[in-house]
Write a protein that binds this DNA or RNA. Structure first.
Length: 269
DNA sequence: ATGGTCCCCTGACCGC
DNA sequence: TGCGGTCAGGGGACCA
């Protein structure tokens, strides 16, 4: 479910509620996530003060007195704050009890991940991530040189988290539309200038999505349960058969790397 | 190394 | 109403 803009939306929402608060208790109801919840999670977190709420790619990091809590939401994960103790819903796998509220991790498909790390910046999961989309290390020249001789479709390239962190299936299609690049185009045959346009498009689409609180297609909600509004700004994702906002041609759908991919045959080449 | 395929899991939806 | 098939915002293991 959540890509960078959705995780950033959650991060911004959680930050003022969590920073400075102490985790008073931990309740684990289901340990079978993408990686099993560690048995020592409770002892690592209890009595710890939360000092920072950060994001790296699609990972959320909650900095504690000692170490960090590292959270990935997978396809269906969400975090929810509530001021009082409510009955846990089905798929509420983990609850952190604070002095004045509760933070619940909810994930029906259980592709998500919650773990404690003493040194998250050097954790193998984060270590392999490429630059943030706004970092100078993500630029046309790097993309150009990284793809020479490669046969991978540019759409699949954007999903490679080691190249740039945070882009998922929605924003890959949307960025390629803004850049005017056909998603199936072979990445090794794209000119440097076009990669510069693509980098700019990625940043614009992510900026705009964050500004609108992310994209809600089915069930994405922020930490208070509110949906995101970028769905209204989607140009191609999920719009198969509908007219392009720009040229009126019919939006088409193809499969690239087992994932649905959307594009406008008039605007993208 | 690269890129394609399959799998993890639950729920929603569609056609019969 | 029920049933089977398909698909979903992610990522990693495996294979040629």
């Amino acid at each position: 479910m959540p890509e960078l803009p959705e995780v950033e939306t959650i991060r911004r929402g959680l930050e003022p509620f969590l920073v400075g608060r102490v985790i008073e208790g931990v309740e684990i109801r289901e340990t079978r996530l993408r990686r099993p919840l560690s048995p020592d999670l409770s002892s690592r977190l209890t009595s710890q003060r939360m000092e920072r709420v950060e994001r790296r790619g699609k990972y959320l990091l909650i900095g504690l007195d000692a170490g960090s809590l590292l959270i990935h939401l997978g396809m269906s994960g969400s975090l929810r704050l509530s001021p009082r103790e409510t009955l846990p819903r089905v798929h509420d796998h983990l609850t952190l009890r604070l002095a004045d509220g509760f933070l619940r991790f909810h994930d029906p498909r259980r592709f998500g991940l919650v773990l404690w790390s003493a040194d998250p910046t050097h954790h193998p999961l984060l270590d392999r991530l490429g630059p943030e989309p706004w970092d100078s290390g993500f630029n046309g020249s790097t993309l150009y040189h990284a793809t020479r001789g490669r046969r991978l479709a540019v759409k699949a390239l954007l999903l490679d988290q080691t190249l740039v962190a945070g882009i998922g299936n929605i924003y890959a299609s949307e960025a390629l539309f803004l850049a005017g690049i056909h998603p199936a185009r072979v990445s090794g045959r794209i000119a440097e200038k076009r990669y510069e346009v693509l980098v700019d498009a990625v940043r614009r689409v992510l900026d705009q999505a964050i500004a609108q609180g992310g994209t809600t297609l089915r069930d994405f909600c922020d930490e208070q349960g509110r949906p995101g509004y970028f769905s209204q700004s989607l140009n191609v994702y999920g719009r198969t058969g509908e007219p392009c906002h720009h040229c009126e041609r019919t939006i088409r759908e193809v499969r690239i790397g087992q994932r649905s991919t959307f594009f406008c045959p008039g605007c993208q080449h």
